[in-house]
Each structure stands twice: as C-alpha cells, then as structure tokens.
Simulated scan of single mutants.
Amino acid sequence: MEVNKDWEECTSDAAVAEAARLTDEQYNKKMQRRKEVQDKRIENAISEKGLIIVNTGNGKGKTTAALGMVIRALGHGYKVAIIQFIKGAWEPAEKKVLSVWSDQLEFHAMGEGFTWETQDRERDIMVAQAAWEKALVYIKNPDFRVVLLDEVNIALKLGYLNLEDIIKGLEQKPDLNHVILTGRGAPKQLIERADLVTEMTLVKHPFREQGVKAQPGIEF
C-alpha cells in the first residue's frame, strides 16, 4: 500500500508541476532521495503472498484487467482456472484466444446469460452454485496458481450464492495462490477480506450515451 501511495504522490498533478519547476540538479537529488526510500520499502517487503483480488465498480474493464493477470500467470508457466458465473450462453472470444494454453488453462463458462435473458431465478441459482462448486475445486488445488471467478460478484449481489460460503472457500486456498473475483457490487465483507481491490469508475459509456450495442472485440 505504501508503494502505491508513493507512486500516486509522485504522479499527482501537484508533484508533476513541482518537478517541472526544479533545476536538473534539484530534480536529480529529489529523485535520488525518492529512490532510496522506495528501495528501502521494497527491501522490507514480503517477497510472496497469495492474494485475494477484487475488481468491482460500474465501469468497464473488470474482466479485462483480470484476464491481463491471467495472461501474465500463463506466461510464467503457471496453471490457471477461469470460471465464468454469468457468461456461458455465448462463446466468449477470450476462451478461443486462451485455448493456445490448453495445457495450462482450465476454462469453464458456466453461466447461462443475464437474469433478464434467463428469466428463471431458480435455475440461475442452481447454475451459480454449480459454478461455485467447480471453482472451489480449483481454489483448493495447489497446482492452480491463479483462479479467476468472473462475475461472481453479480451472483452474490443477486443472492444466488451465500457470501459466508465464498469467504470460507477463499480461506481454503493455498498460501501462495491467487484468486480474482470480478463483477460490480462486490459486498463490503469481501472487500474487507481482499488484499487488492480496484473499483472501475464509469465516466462515459457508448450504450448509455449513444445507444451503441455491445461490439465484438470490445464487450465480447
């Protein structure tokens, strides 16, 4: 957290404006002091820790950011599991692209679409719970370094899953393994338990402002 705070301070509008007023010599001295502080923080930091990561908020990019982490993990040779709790009624393009890592990746698109499409709450609950049972197998498996629970926050928000069950399940993950949970409306208890939380803020959206439908390569 301190590292992030230091980076935010360094790149704030005030800091950038101040840096622009410094002479080269003053700037070099300032950056040297900052580097010494940063190096000390890194020296005292924990080398590894399995993280619970939450991407939430009304803005776009929650799943996209999580998939970036998935690609990094695959690039390091780690095994990864993706369980999609809402998507599944259509074939997501990311599943096709990631299929080249079939020896490292398990991909399960288990949802049946959005609630206004399924119009069957009982079945939605059954499907979400089946997806959670599948996810829990990977969460507890030490061979899977990263597990992505895509749109699980939506399933929680709609009451399809029990939050206490999810929290207990997350506690069963191996110490060095990471679990990523995406979707708007992440509950407070989950946010408090997480190690890394990012909230995507909606500023403009082409569907809301211009009536532009979901497009391949952007939304799916």
Rank of each mutant, 00 (worst) to 15 (best):
T11V: 08
Y27T: 11
L148W: 01
R193A: 13
P92L: 05
I42Y: 05
L170Q: 09
H76Y: 04
G61F: 06
G183S: 10
L181G: 06
R193F: 13
N55T: 07
R121Q: 08
K204F: 14
I52C: 09
T201C: 07
V146H: 00
G77A: 02
G75Q: 03
S12M: 06
W7A: 12
F220Q: 12
S102F: 04
I42A: 02
I218D: 01
G77D: 02
I46T: 13
D120P: 02
R208S: 10
M200G: 02
K35W: 04
E94I: 03
L74H: 03
K40C: 06
V146T: 13
G59Y: 04
V147Y: 00
G57H: 00
D120A: 06
A130H: 09
Q26I: 00
L161T: 02
V137H: 15
A194H: 06
Q104N: 10
G211D: 03
D103F: 11
Q210Y: 09
V70D: 14
L22A: 04
K40V: 01
D165Q: 13
P187A: 09
I191N: 06
I154H: 15
A15C: 02
T56M: 06
E43D: 13
L170P: 05
K60T: 01
L190S: 04
L98V: 08
T118N: 10
G113L: 04
S47T: 12
L51R: 13
A155D: 12
N141K: 14
K79P: 08
V147Q: 03
I53T: 04
E199L: 09
F107Y: 15
S99N: 15
K62R: 01
A93T: 11
K173P: 05
V203D: 14
S99Q: 14
P142G: 07
I53L: 00
K168H: 14
R121C: 00
D175N: 15
L181T: 04
E9P: 00
L74M: 05
I71Y: 03
Y27E: 11
I166Q: 02
Q119S: 13
G111L: 11
D150N: 12
L163F: 02
A155L: 08
N44G: 07
G211Q: 10
K157C: 07
P92V: 08
G75K: 03
N153D: 02
I166S: 03
L176C: 01
N177R: 04
A65R: 05
K35G: 00
A45L: 07
G113W: 05
K96A: 10
A14V: 10
R193D: 00
A66V: 01
Q84P: 06
D24R: 07
E36D: 12
E112N: 10
G75N: 03
Q172S: 12
T115W: 05
E122A: 14
E219M: 07
V100A: 10
R193E: 01
I125D: 07
P174L: 08
E25Q: 09
D120V: 07
E171N: 15
D143G: 07
E122T: 15
I46K: 14
R193I: 05
L181P: 06
A81S: 12
G61C: 04
D195N: 15
W7H: 08
R121G: 00
